[in-house]
């Protein structure tokens, strides 16, 4: 039987170039393709997102813009995505990867919810979702086919009764801190967030946290500063509040801005000299 197998295996290597299988080794398949390239850059993008822990949970902020290069292409995009009733994502980077990823997560959570009717097991905690996301993003970058995002995961762990805030990006990089920002926000907003956070909680974070109102006002400030300094931002944004009461996502809002100073800037308005 074995012999028969090996005998039959030979004809399968025959082809037009070697009709009688005379070559000592079967010819190697010719590569007809150029090297395969995956995503080289994001296309439609969202700019930086912010997150901060406050005394009763976590707040996330993201504006409503999806840019096409430098063009402000879509101005009513929600980049805050609730998952279950105790976790929320704020997502920067490629918007189609964002949509793909949220569909995948929604389906995963839905399947888990279905099964939980049978065993009454609680749903995924924010940490569980974050672990899953981290694995997903690291696995994709390891295939050199990344999902081009930077994500903040904000949550309230109902079992441990504590807030959760962490970062993961297209490289699978992960870290956690009581205040977080992605992209240009990490340079411009993070110092402001940290300063205000540490003013109350101290460098060790052991003091009292900001109240909900203080945290929201701080995010308002940061979103305004980012609108002034980030050319890919929009003065229309939303804030997600994740607490023991669940996930609440605000209506879109704007900051009061003052552009009078711009008259004195070279390059703004018609050139006078």
């Amino acid at each position: 039987m074995n012999q028969l197998h090996s005998f039959q295996a030979v004809p399968s290597t025959r082809n037009a170039f070697d009709a009688y299988s005379t070559l000592p080794e079967p010819p190697r398949p010719q590569s007809t393709h150029a090297p395969r390239a995956h995503t080289q850059q994001p296309i439609v993008t969202g700019t930086s997102v912010l997150g901060i822990k406050y005394e009763g949970g976590v707040m996330l902020a993201a504006d409503n813009l999806a840019s096409y290069g430098s063009l402000a292409r879509f101005k009513d995009i929600q980049r805050l995505h609730p998952l279950g009733d105790n976790t929320c994502l704020a997502v920067a980077g490629d918007m189609s990867d964002f949509q793909y990823m949220t569909k995948l997560l929604d389906a995963t959570l839905r399947a888990d919810r279905s099964v939980s009717l049978t065993d009454t097991h609680p749903p995924f905690s924010p940490q569980n979702i974050y672990t899953y996301l981290s694995n997903l993003y690291y696995a994709r970058r390891s295939k050199v086919n990344p999902l081009w995002n930077a994500i903040l995961v904000g949550g309230w762990d109902k079992e441990k009764k504590e807030s959760f805030l962490a970062y993961v990006d297209l490289l699978g990089t992960t870290y956690s801190a009581p205040t977080l920002a992605t992209g240009i926000g990490a340079h411009i907003a993070q110092p402001l967030l940290r300063e205000a956070y540490e003013a109350k909680a101290g460098v060790d974070g052991k003091g009292p946290l900001l109240t909900g109102q203080e945290a929201e006002e701080l995010l308002d400030t940061c979103m305004k500063v980012l609108f002034y300094r980030d050319a890919r931002s929009l003065n229309k944004y939303q804030i997600a509040t994740i607490s023991n009461d669940g996930v609440k996502i605000s209506d879109s809002k704007s900051s009061e801005t003052e552009w009078g100073f711009a008259e004195g800037l070279r390059g703004y308005g018609p050139q006078t000299q």
């Binding site: 839905r110 919810r113 279905s114 099964v115 009717l117 049978t118």
Partner: peptide, 12 residues
């Protein structure tokens, strides 16, 4: 030991 199962959010 439930005998009724969920298939989707609104289907049993």
């Amino acid at each position: 030991n439930r005998r009724i199962q969920s298939l989707d959010d609104s289907i049993g």
